[in-house]
Design a protein around this nucleic acid. Structure first.
Length: 131
RNA sequence: GCUACCGGUUGGGUUAUCGCUCCGUUUUGCGGGGAGGAAAGUCUGGACAGCGCAGGGCAAUGCACCGGUGAAGAGCCGGGUAUCGGGUUCCGGGUCAAAAACCCGGGAUUCGAUAACAGAAAGUGCCACAGAAAAUUACAGCCCCGGGUCUUGCCCGGGGUGAUGGUGAAAACGUGAGGUAAGAGCUCACGACUAUGCCUGGCAACAGGCAUAGGGGGUAAACCUUGCAUGCUGAAAUGCCACGUAUACCAUCGGCUGAAGGCGGCUCGCCUGAGCCCCGGCUUUUCGGCCGGGGUCCGAUGGAGGGUAGGCAGAUUGAUCCGCCGGGUAACCGGCAGGACAGAUAAAUGAUAACCAUUCACCGAAAGGUGGAAACAGAAUCCGGCUUACAGACCGGUAGCAAGU
RNA sequence: CGGGACGUAGCGCAGCCCGGUAGCGCACUUGCAUGGGGUGCAAGGGGUCGCUAGUUCGAAUCUAGUCGUCCCGA
């Protein structure tokens, strides 16, 4: 596929139903600063499902101001966008689809470097478990 | 000039690479738009939508000097009044031998700030402690009368008094004179205040003047009274489409008698019999019997329950903003031509790098170099306001300090 | 997006309506009782009443603004 570094609407988790299901049935994974929920689905071309869907969020309990929550989500999306490519290839090989949702669990506003490193770790761990 | 405080305006820019969202065109490229002055708090006023609605009253809530403005308002503008602060000037007093200066008090005028600014003379309540008394009150004191006692005096009883005393946040108009047994707005003069009437100025609030009457503590962000305003709900409103489920149950109404005797409106309640009808199996020559399964109403509206959690409309161009001209003290209004104006929905507006502005620290004689800092904060139906948060820069005002004229 | 409640001692709460003394239980400190501890008894300390203004002579209480915590509505 082209545009390997993009992250359009289709590749983001948008449906409330799907996200609720993910929290309820998905597997959980903790790394410093982040908590990830993920679930592996069988992939079929006929129904227009997407191989890899992603979402990110932060608790409004710990981050009261909307500016800070927006900032965390933007940094999270950016880090995911730049690092998801090898992941995608692995899924294609296995013919599976994957949903991932990341929640920021730190208490203070992160900078880009921290976020990038944490997301990299999440991808590494999930990638290991897929095998 | 510096520092502090207050008010107002503004709320960094350019480029490259990789992305996000909407629109357009074409087709997988290109072009264009993409957070705020507060988007915030949700304190207010509307628009819009659904439901409700004969008329009147009560209740509840909100507002409260006057005029203007506006769709409306607890907004804004102008004016009035009150309080506070400053300046100028005048008068009186104190300090001093005297003047100046300084301090205190008052008047006039001017500048600025603040005000939930109707009513305490409709009624009710409250005013701790202290004090005689906190609003029809007498503790001490003062004065009068009667009685007791030998008189001054003292004691007992009755009465008058709001001047004296100390208390308190607050003590029953102020000053002077008359008056009295002692006293008191008890009376009088002047002054202050309140109410009413008239005159003058003003659209009005109100101000000034004259006359008459009055003696009344405070508190309405205590209850309350008066006047005015307000139907309720709130985009999760509301309309449509798709998906999906159960009319099992209750109420009202209509149709309808059927494969079945009638009613209750559909399996045991009654007449009358644990009934009747259909299908299948077994048995029987048939009638019949036994076993198993199914049926014994349909529809509309509302309630209640269950299901769905997707899409479209609402929904982004409007009481809009910028510019010029005109009117108005101003808020604001009118006219003109051109331009500008996001639309997401687990929710776009971002990341990295460089440079230029702003500013701080250090190095340097300078040019310059090195390293930092940059606030408050993120649209969610849309507007008008209010309130709160805010780095730096610029403008204005006030106060202090330093220097000069 | 729209409603509502609560901030008082280390902890859990009362007082607020209708203004004047801040109180209760547990905990803490000291003493008594016991050989010691627990239990019990007696005494004591500890408070910007979330914060900032206003009304009032006077505010935990009334009013306004503000900060924080929690809850409810598909």
């Amino acid at each position: 596929m082209q545009m390997k570094k993009s992250l359009s609407k289709k590749e983001r988790l948008k449906s409330r139903k799907q996200i609720d299901k993910l929290f309820k049935e998905g597997l959980r994974l903790n790394v410093p600063l982040l908590r990830a929920f993920y679930v592996v689905r069988p992939f079929s071309v006929s129904e227009r499902s997407v191989r890899l869907q992603f979402g990110v969020g932060a608790s409004s309990r710990t981050f009261k101001r909307a500016v800070d929550r927006n900032r965390i989500k933007r940094l999270g999306r950016e880090a995911w966008r730049l690092q998801k490519e090898p992941f995608f290839l692995q899924l294609e090989e296995l013919n599976k689809a994957l949903d991932v949702f990341i929640i920021y669990t730190g208490k203070e506003l992160p900078d880009y470097q921290q976020m990038y490193a944490s997301v990299a770790e999440v991808i590494k761990k999930i990638g290991g478990k897929l095998k």
